[in-house]
């Protein structure tokens, strides 16, 4: 992969509110064409960081560089390249969606009326664009918010909890739009969420934040691989204790949660085959083997020290 200038650079960003450090020396880069998932439990500092990048909050320290422009010294040039939704999309509710977009477009360079029609079609609101936004449902408001965020073809697109209020079809569509925007138009997309499952489906990389600190950044592939390496399997057997004794001879295996007729083992895919063979060989009966869950969440909980909403 050729070395490209990062679309967004956050260097050592820090923000404290009173005694609480909401964002603590966070640094990372966002590259063109990637979808970056910003994951963390409620109150981890996701929204504060996003508000800092979007110009709502002044960082106490640190530098934010958007599309090569330092936000501090070249505010307007930097902000020209950014689009997004913070928390809920809020429009002028007594104005039509189209007028809202036209007003927003006026503040950017080179946004034509054709472009407005284009984004309205993209989010599927072309037929109701002339209605006042106050008549819109929450999902429609999310869509018009997305349309506004995409309007000026930003180099960096930041969406804070974008799936709130969307129906499953809408979520699916949003994923498609985001992937398309990132992969085809080369936009760097950052999506924040506390829902891991959502992140898995749309992100290329994930950054995990907790208590204001950025704990880890990894690609979704690595995370999946890591998860695949050790999954939890529930083995149903008439004598779990005997089985435990047999399996404990094997290296790289963790046994947890012993009940009267099951035991859970944490091991990779090839390992479980051997476990089954060992139990069969020793004469233990196997009533069933079940893969319990991807341990991505487990991994996540471990990294963040718990407190995530798992759905």
């Amino acid at each position: 992969m050729e070395k490209q200038q990062p679309a967004l650079q956050i260097i050592d960003a820090t923000k404290t509110f009173g005694k609480k450090t909401a964002v603590d020396h966070v640094s990372f880069d966002l590259h063109p064409g990637e979808v970056f998932g910003f994951l963390g439990p409620n109150g981890a500092g996701k929204t504060t960081l996003i508000k800092m990048v979007m110009g709502f909050i002044r960082p106490d320290a640190g530098t934010i560089i958007i599309n090569g422009f330092n936000r501090k010294t070249h505010y307007e040039e930097a902000m020209e390249s950014i689009g997004g939704i913070v928390e809920n999309p809020e429009m002028y509710s007594n104005l039509s969606a189209r007028l809202n977009l036209q007003m927003y477009a006026r503040l950017h360079k080179n946004v034509t009326n054709e472009r407005i029609d284009e984004v309205l079609r993209l989010v599927g609101l072309q037929d109701r664009a002339n209605e006042a936004v106050k008549k819109y449902s929450l999902g429609m408001k999310q869509r018009i918010g997305l349309a506004q965020a995409l309007l000026h073809r930003p180099k960096v697109l930041i969406l804070d909890e974008p799936t709130n209020g969307l129906d499953p079809a809408g979520i699916h569509q949003l994923r498609d739009i985001l992937k398309q925007t990132a992969h085809e138009e080369g936009t760097a997309v950052m999506v924040s969420s506390h829902l891991l499952s959502e992140m898995q489906l749309m992100c290329d990389r994930i950054g995990i934040i907790s208590h204001g600190k950025l704990l880890q950044i990894c690609s979704i592939d690595d995370l999946t691989k890591q998860a695949e390496q050790s999954s939890i399997y529930r083995i149903k057997t008439s004598n779990p204790e005997a089985a435990q004794k047999i399996l404990s001879q094997k290296e790289g295996l963790k046994i947890s949660n012993l009940t009267s007729n099951t035991l859970d083992v944490e091991i990779d895919e090839t390992g479980i085959n051997e476990c089954v063979r060992m139990m069969v060989a020793s004469g233990s009966d196997i009533l069933g083997v079940q893969k319990l869950e991807s341990s991505l969440e487990e991994a996540f909980l471990e990294i963040t020290g718990g407190g995530i909403n798992v759905e």
Binding site: M54, G84, E90
Partner: peptide, 15 residues
């Protein structure tokens, strides 16, 4: 109060 200020803050204009 309504939050519509957001679309002004996000826009590339100094406050």
């Amino acid at each position: 109060a309504t939050g519509s200020i957001k679309s002004l803050i996000i826009a590339p204009v100094k406050r």
